[in-house]
Amino acid sequence: MLVDYLERGVLAGAIAGIAYGAYMAVVANPLIGYMETVAAGGDHAHAGEHAHEAGEHAHAAGEHAHAVSEATTAAVSVGSGVLWGILLGGVFALAFYFLEPALPGRGRVKTYVLAGAGFLTVSVAPWLVLPPTTPGAEQAFDPTLRIAIYAGLMAVGAVVAVLSVYAYRRVSARSRPLGGVAAALPIVALVAVTAIAAPTIVESGSMPADLVTAFRGLTALSQAALWALVAGCFGWLQTRAGVHSTAERRDDLLASP
């Protein structure tokens, strides 16, 4: 049974990954290429006080542009996007197999709840402290420490997701809207605490603020879409395979004995 779930998860992840790879090829690669040029050309656009600062960004961006060719980066990035979908799909299916009985909602709603929890854990919680970096951004601390912070925040995100589901299950027995409020509380608390207490690690430098906001919005939406697609395809494959939970079968029997 676990293997069946994993098979469907990897397939759902491959479908979502191909879509995400297409997004990488059509949107992200050209956009990041353009932003590299903006970061490198900052000293031309900003005269005077910003010139020195922008020059440093250009140097930083230049270093990365030269390590491998642009074509290689574009191709490997598209491939990584597909693999990313497969990884998320596989991990999603494993988690879904074990957690399905504990997730709130019926049938396919459960898949979207888990996808939301996954998005919160893998992306949203770490982004509250380490927002998606634009090319040429300056970051505090060395990469090893930032990876540790990212991993730590993933753990925090997972705990918050569990608390949220637990709160919903406790409270929704009495009232569903109150359950929704209870589920939102841990997430709001996480956002508030990181907004107040977390240090600023990522400085976007000379990049126009609107472009940074647009890039971060696009990153967040594309990751959310990837999770939604994984959950949607997985749910569809489960239905196609005729998998129904015991609770649903019981409800169906009660409705039409």
């Binding site: 990041i32 491998v68 980066t73 490997v76 990035s77 998606p132 970096t133 990751q223």
Partner: peptide, 21 residues
Amino acid sequence: QEPLIHDSMHNFRHAAGVVCH
């Protein structure tokens, strides 16, 4: 973090919002 592999995934890492250089 091996430079060649890390850098060839550069655009993906930016686009997915994961820790980069």
